[in-house]
Design a protein around this nucleic acid. Structure first.
Lengths: 108, 108
DNA sequence: ACAGTAGTTCGATGACCACCGTACCATAAG
DNA sequence: CTTATGGTACGGTGGTCATCGAACTACTGT
């Protein structure tokens, strides 16, 4: 039974609303090499990825830290899946709020 | 006319070459409110502006600091003019290196 | 129940950063 | 030369940040 996990509310985590995403926070989040790598890898894979499936040069706790920064800046959305935590890039939200920004960063 | 500025003219200041401009440095430079204001104001005025002619909430030395960060990140070009120091946005260089990035940030 | 896996929390540390004030330097104007 | 202006250099301060390791939680599968 893996059925009834459909509670759409109960965000569980702090995800800023689209209109609350701040430019400075986004730029700061992207100005770190590890986080930039995460974002790039998420952009390359349309599927949600588990936090642990990234090639990062940092320990577990630091990894958690980076994912939180990305989430609170509004760059990614995180969702629990069993023992893992899946992340997806908030592409549309970002494109809505700051058109062209993500594309420019990704293609750089 | 962006031809030949590699000469003995005493660089005077550290201006990274176009291909040396780093994304992380640019993003970090832009992630500060005061610096973002400077960049926006420079983008609005095509003419070079003196460092002192900006409405910033910080003291002189801090101002100098921000302009150095922007210059070393490759965002602005600075030139002496008498007692003043004029700054211009390196629009073309930025557009060459990271197409669309500056526009996206400015229109945000 | 038990062990394994995935991620979090906590405290600490060293680095960096934004900011200030004062003193200093360089050019321009009287 | 002297003074005023515009900016830099220095030293310091408090705050934030990236990083770690160790202990902890939560879920899975046996």
């Amino acid at each position: 039974m893996v059925g009834m996990e459909q509670v759409p509310v109960a965000p569980e985590f702090t995800h800023p609303a689209v209109e609350e995403i701040e430019l400075a926070a986004v730029l700061h989040a992207l100005s770190d090499p590890q986080r930039l790598r995460i974002v790039r890898e998420l952009a390359a894979n349309a599927e949600p990825l588990a936090c642990g499936s990234f090639a990062l040069d940092v320990g577990k706790s630091t990894r958690t830290h980076h994912f939180r920064v990305l989430r609170e800046a509004g760059l990614i959305e995180q969702r629990r899946d069993g023992t893992r935590k899946l992340s997806v890039l908030r592409r549309e939200d970002l494109d809505t709020r700051f058109p062209g920004l993500l594309d420019a960063v990704l293609s750089a």
